[in-house]
Design a protein around this nucleic acid. Structure first.
Lengths: 220, 220, 220, 220
DNA sequence: GATGAATGAGCGTTCATTCAT
DNA sequence: TATGAATGAACGCTCATTCAT
């Protein structure tokens, strides 16, 4: 071996397998998100997460301590992501009817594009939000959506478009629930009612039904 | 730990729980329902179910074969129960508005009184309804609710009360989802929005909001 | 195969590998005693104990729950054994000098023949007797030795042979300690003092030294 | 758990404990002494030692190579300490009876004040003095005590005070064992005999018993 | 119909140790 | 001299399941 040759500075790909804590952390979170959202907290396997991430299992403990803490980190990331997406909504800048449409549509499409968010929330609720309650991070990420929706409803009422007396939190939960339940439960619903709710056509129908339902209620 | 320990030589009291297959079966299903609904399919433990039922673990295998089949039996029982409750609704015998009120209220209260139904469905959906699809029994238990709702909507439309063009399945999913999502996700929602949705007052508000929402949409 | 032939009642060796809980329990205790006494509580390996016993590792948990409980069971057995051996001493039936000789000699030879007793006690003391304190069994096994020794000393004093004012517990601890320390520490002592204390001749010298020491003190 | 977690980017305070090899080495030895004497060789954890010392785990390897070598260093330090204390005894300068008293008392108090010495020796004996045998350092530290005791016994005999024919090594082992066994085993002894041997009063009684025992034997 | 005894596979976690800088 | 990142092996323990009676 050319023993005197200067060691060639390794190209920036050294991080793929190691020595890049940020990337390693990220890889673990991603692999864990897949595993937890597919199999639930109880069904997920630490070995499988390590294998998915292509990392030594010991590293998961080095970075996160234990399975539950890793689950919490996955949840935190999931909330960071949706909060970040909510930022682009800008409901204050369109007319109230359009704002409601946009909110319904955003919620629907976000859940469709992030099915892991649904199953992670279901797992967390199965455990009575115990990880979320421990999380400082999630408390910091409080959503501005309820306040924004409050202003939208108020504008709509002021313009004589919307009915009065609508609790923005109740409405928000309804809008979220209309999408969430359909998507979360479509496997059982499809089986029970013998209609495949996972088809694109069914999904389009769902969105228009939900929009009609919410606006049909709000508009006086 | 102790659940597994060898027992002291027991006196000849094999008849304590009795050689009563029906009762034994029932005891297993109930214990399994608690365990699965509390911990999910992956988190449930066969040992724990046997302990809850006060029965020898081997009996679970004698009656149900394995864990997944037991889960399926639990699901089947859950569907039998809700179908049986739905029987008392008699929506065809009241006026359309009252029928809708009754359906919303029934759904809400059934979920409240059977929280295990919610978590079992979430578990089953996590596994993409695989057990449900295998179940002959659940297919036999098809719900008459969509047909009934169809007739209610038709009557409402004929009387000039309700809007036209409402898909009864979509509406049913919405009614179910409004309750289901709130109850299923109230732990995370409470934590995220800092408002305790598990309090009686919050629950009363939810029911009136849902009723208003659905009727506000339907009534023209 | 002679399908109608009566199944030959299995000879009494069916218990070697299984289905004999008493023998299984015994085999585990024996294997665990070897392992714990050789490597200490922290150094002992559950896998190794199972292998030594020729049993499935799971069985150790079935019978004893966990490592610490198994260690406790080993300790209890060790105390049962020494108590049982003490029973044969019958110090009340010989003259006081012979009784003291016999006690010193018994203690010495018991420790020599049961080296595991020494290391087990050392391990238990390292952990501040935490397992022993938990053990109901050991409390039941209280030794009659202190009372017996008290009577021996009293007899010796009455006969004008022994000095007065000897606390039997202190003397018992001294007699035990003279043997125990030598045997427990002979590896380091041999190394430090460059004299092999594990040789038969050294052992014989030790016994006569101890007997002389104790009787030299007692006799007036 | 947290001991292993990745640290937040630390400010440039590498000098907190300082680039002081002597002090670092000392800190490691002290932390390791606590850990090994508390938990034994098998129960001690490298991580815990590093945490106790407030140092990076890697440093322990830098200075000592591996766990066993560190244990050996701890042992060597323990022997250095006791040899150093023995230096102050000056048994040759007092009368024989006083010399024996002093030796018994010194041994007793040294063990009381250095409980780690007892458990370290027990650990080393569990492993059959394997580390001690490897240690050049400990061989260099040979104790003058046996020779000194030999002279004391000889003086006593010459003065007609002490009996003849006493092996100084046997006597030394007896003196050490009387203290060592009591202190090493007081947890189990207290539990078994239902008398708290760790109380100051019990300790005072022990010292006077031992002195009486040894002198009662020696004095003719 | 019912049970205590037994098992192979795999779980989450931790170990002492090494790498790269 | 010092450290954060990384690892293979193994740990104590538990899993769903089956055997033998």
């Amino acid at each position: 071996m050319a023993e005197d040759a200067p060691k060639e500075t390794p190209p920036d790909t050294a991080a793929v397998t190691g020595r890049n804590p940020v990337r390693t952390r990220q890889a673990i979170i991603e692999a864990a998100t897949e595993e937890f959202s597919t199999l639930g907290l109880g069904g997920a396997r630490i070995d499988a997460i390590a294998a998915r991430a292509g990392l030594n299992k010991r590293l998961l403990y080095y970075y996160f301590g234990n399975k539950e803490a890793l689950f919490q980190a996955v949840l935190e990331r999931a909330y960071e992501n949706i909060r970040s997406a909510e930022h682009g909504l800008q409901l204050d800048e369109v007319d109230p009817v359009e704002a409601i449409r946009r909110l319904v549509s955003f919620t629907w499409h976000y859940y469709i594009q992030h099915p892991e968010f649904i199953t992670l929330l279901n797992s967390e609720n199965l455990h009575q939000a115990s990880h979320l309650k421990k999380s400082q991070r999630i408390r910091e990420l409080n959503s501005p959506l309820i306040d924004t929706l409050h202003r939208v409803l108020e504008r709509g009422r002021a313009e004589g478009l919307f009915r009065a007396g609508v609790d923005p939190l109740q409405l928000y939960i309804s809008i979220a629930g209309l999408s969430f339940f359909y998507l979360s439960n479509r496997h059982t619903l499809s089986a029970v009612f013998g209609r495949d709710l996972r088809q694109p056509k069914a999904e389009a129908e769902r969105l228009s039904h939900m929009t009609e339902l919410v606006l049909g209620y709000l508009l006086r």
